[in-house]
Amino acid sequence: MTKIVVLVKEVPDAAVQKQVDSSTGRLDRSGEKTLNPFDTHAIEAALQLKESGALDVDEVVAVTVGPSSAVKALHKAVSLGADRSIHLTDDALVGSDVVGTGYALAELIKRESPDLVLAGQQSDDGQSYAVGAAVAEYLGWPGLTQVIKLDVDGQTLTCERQAEYGYDTVKVTLPAVISVGDAINEPRYPSLKAIMGAKKKPLESLSLGDAEIDASKVGEAGRKAVWTGSQEPPAKAAGELIEDEDTAETVEKIVAWLDDRKLI
């Protein structure tokens, strides 16, 4: 039997304007919140592995680290089909950086000892793209990112991942941590029954102490990355506009422009 953990996160709704609070150096996450849309692809991937029978999945567990409001993101995750959820919430977690969050998640995952961990490619707020990799590092498991195709053969997964230059095909043996690209699937909509039944599915709420997580490695205490300031990217010099009045003349102008810069 196989157990899949899906990492999820509560993020500000896409319509909310996001900015850094300069007094804390952290992202201002006030306003309407939602389940990170990229995570719905990871949940869908887990469900497809279960429903297709590709893996003999007996349980899909959604796991999050976040404030008390993150319960709603877990409700959404189970309404989409996860069987139960785990919520690590503790004031000492506030201000955790990517590595601290990865450590805390890895500790939660060890408690569950799953065969596969799935994550979305990025969060819609912090956008580090790196939490999945940090979790894999802490677990000492293989980690793959931007996976858009998963083929199962026993305990071996053949994964296609998006790369800058094309696609990599990578074989990995379970257990593994895989963050999926949003091209991997079309997430389903939760049925009304599933929405209403979400609060009835088991939700385990843990503090750092409950999960035996070292508080010095997370939050403000453990963070190594600190936001110190930000600035607009330098403005680009205005381009040159060539009006196309006489096409022969326009072509000449473009050729001359390229020639000046030794581009042709």
Binding site: T34, K76, Y189, P190, L192, I195
Partner: peptide, 14 residues
């Protein structure tokens, strides 16, 4: 209520 709000989001997305 929460369930109506969640349904609103899902129907909106659909």
């Amino acid at each position: 209520p929460d369930d109506a709000l969640e349904l609103r989001k899902v129907v909106r997305d659909f």
